[in-house]
Write a protein that binds this DNA or RNA. Structure first.
Length: 576
DNA sequence: GCCGTTTTCGGCCCGACTGTTTTCAGTCG
């Protein structure tokens, strides 16, 4: 775990332990906020050396600034260590159980000595929970249900999976209620890389009927809540889906509220409050007299607060609130600006389509270029191309382009492996014929931070390499990122005018949004590649674009938004 | 613990749903 992650987790633990201890809510919130600020501005914050500089960040005051400096100095925070002595840290795992929060965690620990989820389950099964003050048989059952959900709950869904499921439910609802106004909200609308539960918002005059239909859908296996305004179900695959229904004139306010993020909403409501307004999911109201002044559209809700409309992908309380207030929201990449894809495999290595099939698919998407980047020879598992085969492929590509019958220019390329010393697996003669060389780490994931960073820097400095592929190597839910000093890689890339990949394959999304925020700050160019292994995968571009937007990346840093001539100039610059 | 063209003290987002309540606490998002 890197330092940023560690510090952010430390504040998270500080918040949770304080909450169990019974500290005032506001202090707990302040720690949560600090954890979030650290996650957002991590590296930058860790470079700061004095309290006053740190206090410029929103939500960091004297107390938290001193704790950050203490962490830098000693690797820990004494206040946290102290709390850990008072409250067993295992109790934090209890908070993961749905329907059991800090109050009940404290109660079961103090009254029954319960510290672990196993002990909690035993206590519930032997009906010792129901005897506690404020708990009864239902609460006991709900906690057991929570434990069950936690154990079988596959955790978070990939964005792509959640999108597909949401579309399926929307389809089923519209079959039953033609013309139904229904939209994804929550983290799905914000396009987070993983989704905890699917949130859907409906506009209707007949909430009762909508909820009946929703709770009766064939894929629903258990109804967790069933109200007129809010219902919550588990699907047969154990996925959690929430639905809210509001009246049409409330739709904008509800969409704003239900899209979140929670901390974005808190900030927005604070602003409303200072203006003598109140925001809830039904509208914006003047507190005096309870007069409603907005709510039909989201734009209207933000406008009456003096804010520009922040795109959902930005709503994470990472500075977008301030930017929207000043009317200085960043220009963001849009899918329509994308002229091509930098990372595609054919059947020559481990993909399934031919050059022509892929070119057709690119044409259908309105692209102007498509980089063909099969694996190089040393990646045997992926059927990597040896010297002869890659040279033949280059010829084929040149011949296809020469036919001049497509608006899409194919770029001859390869995804080459970065060896243990940063060496590449094609020789100069091959590399010098390729338009695009992506260098990726596919081995030695367990090496030290120093070694991996050195390998990547060496590859990055190679004259023929213009892009570092999936720079952290993580696979969501399967493999953590390897240890690499990303900031050093970013600085070097910015210096050399080279790009880091934003790999848009749904399991990767690498660089992620947080790294992209940093890359943008440093002015690093970004090349989005879908890592497509079949033609349909080209549509993963939407997840890449969404992730770039979440990282505030402006279109002029994204190489995909350039015309092919300009892309080629960049690719060949400094190589001959 | 943070924060301030209303305040350096006294505020701090807002509501739905559930269960155990005799008027509301806990959890969730």
């Amino acid at each position: 775990m890197d330092k940023v992650e560690e510090l952010s987790r430390a504040f998270e633990q500080l918040a949770e332990l304080s909450e169990i201890k019974g500290e005032v809510r506001f202090k707990v919130n302040a720690y949560h906020r600090a954890a979030e600020v650290v996650r957002t501005y991590g590296e930058e914050i860790l470079e700061k050396d004095d309290v006053d500089e740190l206090r410029r960040y929103p939500g960091i005051g004297e107390g938290i600034a001193k704790k950050i400096l203490e962490f830098k100095r000693t690797g820990t925070i004494s206040k946290l260590e102290q709390l850990k002595e008072e409250i067993p840290v295992e109790l934090l795992t209890l908070l993961q159980v749905p329907n059991l929060g800090p109050k009940r965690a404290k109660l079961v620990y103090e009254e029954l000595g319960v510290r672990t989820i196993e002990e909690l389950q035993e206590a519930a099964e032997s009906h010792r929970l129901a005897s506690l003050r404020g708990l009864g048989p239902k609460a006991e059952q709900n906690i057991l249900e929570g434990i069950r959900q936690l154990q079988q709950g596959s955790g978070r869904l990939l964005l792509s999976t959640a999108s597909r499921l949401a579309e399926e439910i929307v389809g089923l609802m519209r079959e039953r209620i033609p013309g139904l106004v229904i939209s994804p909200a929550g983290s799905l609308r914000r396009m987070k890389e993983t989704i905890g539960d699917i949130d859907l918002l409906v506009s209707s005059e007949e909430p009762g009927r909508v909820m009946e239909i929703f709770c009766d859908l064939p894929l629903v296996s258990k109804v967790l809540l069933h109200g007129d305004k809010k219902s919550s179900v588990l699907t047969d695959e154990g996925l959690h889906v929430d639905m809210r229904v509001v009246r049409p004139e409330q739709y904008g306010a509800a969409l704003q509220y239900f899209t979140g993020s929670q901390s974005h909403n808190i900030r927005v409501r604070e602003i409303a409050k200072k203006k003598g307004l109140k925001i809830n999911e039904y509208g914006v109201f003047v507190v005096e007299g309870d007069r409603r002044i907005a709510g039909e559209t989201e734009e209207e809700v933000y406008r009456v607060l003096g804010m520009a409309w922040p795109p959902p992908e930005l709503r994470e309380n990472r500075g977008e609130v301030e930017a929207a207030l000043r009317g200085r929201l960043p220009r963001l990449l849009e899918e329509g600006q994308v002229r091509g894809d930098f990372h595609v495999h054919t059947r020559a290595s481990d993909g399934i389509n031919t050059l022509e099939e892929l070119r057709e698919a690119a044409e259908a998407r309105g692209y102007r270029f498509l980089a063909i980047t099969d694996h190089a020879a040393s990646l045997k598992v992926a059927g990597g191309l040896d010297r002869d085969r890659i040279l033949r492929q280059v010829e084929e590509i040149r011949a296809l382009n020469a036919r001049g019958d497509s608006p899409v220019i194919l770029l001859a390329g390869a995804e080459v492996n970065v060896g243990n010393e940063g060496e590449l697996d094609y020789d100069e003669e091959v590399l010098s014929q390729l338009d695009v060389v992506i260098a990726s780490v596919h081995s030695g994931f367990k090496q030290s931070r120093e070694q991996i960073t050195r390998r990547i820097l060496t590859a990055l400095r190679h004259p023929h390499v213009k892009i570092i592929g999936h720079p952290t190597g993580r696979l969501l839910g399967q493999r953590p990122p390897y240890e690499v000093d990303l900031r050093a890689v970013m600085k070097e890339a910015a210096e050399l005018g080279k790009a880091l990949e934003l790999n848009a394959f749904p399991d990767r999304l690498d660089l992620n949004d947080e790294a992209l925020l940093e890359a943008r700050e440093l002015g690093v160019m970004i090349a989005i590649g879908t890592d497509a292994h079949r033609a349909e995968h080209l549509s993963f571009m939407r997840f890449g674009v969404a992730t770039a937007r979440r990282g505030w990346v402006p279109p002029d840093l994204v190489v995909n938004a350039r015309e092919p001539e300009e892309v080629l100039r960049w690719l060949w610059d400094g190589r001959r």
